[in-house]
Simulated assay, not measured.
Amino acid sequence: MADPTTVDRLRPGDHVCWTFDDHERHLRALVRFLRKGLEHDQKVLYITDTFLPPAFLAAAQAYGVEVRQPLNDGQLHVTTAEESFLSDGSFEPERALKGWTAAIDQARAEGWSGLRVAADMGWTVRPLVDMGELARYEAQANQIFSAGYAMALCCYDRRLFTHAELERISAAHPGAARAGAGSVEEWEPLLRIRRTPDGVSLDGAADRTNCDALAAVLDPLAAAADDSDTPLVIDVAGLTFADVATARLLAGTVAAGRGRILLRGARPALVELLAVIGSIQAPRAPELTAAKGTPA
């Protein structure tokens, strides 16, 4: 699994697929994730399907994290999948997404600097959960987390899922941390998607490994542009790499906006790729001016 220290590099707005196959290292990663949240005055929520809540809290305390006061203050909450995702006896994606919005609103109202969520996803292998439905839910969650207040660590035990299932689930997250991540070199989520006052910004690399996550955030932009007083902007100045599928997605989003969505800061390689695709002609307008620097 990824080195436990990898969680130290997560930021508000990140939504990461964290795969593991060792419960002790998973526990260490969760405790680090918890500790950082408490230190940064964030509300911390852990939905466990791996450890019993009392056992996890006792382990965190043994690792030197004082949990009693945060529990009393409402800063820390540890629950189970049965009490959250499956509280009505089945998994309902729309209800779960509304639950995240409500949890964010509550954390804001309580004055916390952010919301930090870790969720064990082993419960999804039960017959009552459809993998396609789960992947769509994970993709749609990016619309919520990309606002930049909350971060989510979705923990998948590789021993419970097929390679194909993990590939599909990973594509619904902007970034994934797999075996070895962070142990040799510094790790960052592959792509960071953030909603901005005038649209969306993209930083990092966009390819087939996070295509569904990006599509879920870009798809609603055309409708949003119709209701906006000014054109919406997809800021790609921080996009260091984009494959052909990503370029097609960007071009299609701009076209769907009918002049109400602008692509800004494209690096030379992306500009050329868009021109080759033919959906957007070689740029002349400022919003399509290639950014100086290393090609994407």
Rank of each mutant, 00 (worst) to 15 (best):
A2K: 06
F161L: 10
V16P: 08
G114N: 09
P286E: 11
L250H: 02
T48A: 13
R32H: 12
L239P: 05
F91G: 05
V254L: 15
A58G: 08
H26Y: 12
A213M: 10
L34F: 06
N72E: 07
E272Q: 11
D130C: 08
E272G: 03
P4T: 09
V7C: 08
F161W: 14
T6F: 09
L274S: 03
T79P: 00
P220H: 10
D207K: 02
R108P: 07
L86V: 13
D219V: 10
A96P: 00
H26I: 01
T209G: 01
A147P: 00
I234W: 05
T230S: 13
A164L: 13
D22V: 04
C211Q: 13
D130A: 10
Q140F: 07
A29D: 03
P268Y: 08
L239M: 09
I261D: 03
L128I: 12
R35N: 13
W112G: 00
D198P: 00
A118H: 04
R267E: 05
H77G: 00
R108K: 15
R168W: 04
R178Q: 09
L270E: 04
N72P: 00
D3P: 02
D219G: 02
Y63P: 00
N142I: 04
D3S: 14
R159E: 14
I104K: 01
L30F: 00
H26R: 14
D207V: 04
P174E: 08
I193G: 03
Y149A: 09
D212F: 10
R25N: 12
A118R: 00
S279I: 01
A150C: 12
A139G: 09
L10Q: 14
F91V: 08
L202Q: 08
V44G: 02
T50H: 09
H26N: 15
E188T: 13
V254M: 04
M1I: 05
K36M: 10
P70Y: 12
G175L: 09
P70N: 08
E39D: 15
D226H: 09
L86A: 06
R9F: 13
I144E: 10
D88H: 07
G175T: 08
L214S: 01
T246W: 03
P189V: 07
S87L: 12
F91Y: 15
A135Q: 11
A282P: 13
E66T: 07
A139I: 08
G64Y: 06
A290P: 09
T101L: 13
F241P: 02
L239I: 07
T48Q: 00
A152R: 04
T289N: 11
L86K: 09
G175A: 11
E165H: 08
L249R: 10
A237Q: 13
A119M: 07
E138Y: 03
G265P: 06
L71C: 07
A29T: 07
S90V: 11
E185D: 13
V184W: 12
D14P: 05
E66I: 04
E287M: 03
T101Y: 06
R168H: 12
V117S: 02
A172L: 07
V233E: 15
A223E: 15
F91K: 10
A179L: 14
G265A: 11
R194Q: 12
L128Q: 15
L249P: 03
G199V: 06
W18S: 01
R195S: 05
V67K: 04
P174I: 10
G278N: 06
R116N: 11
R168E: 11
R284D: 05
D198N: 10
I261E: 05
L190I: 09
D21R: 07
V44L: 06
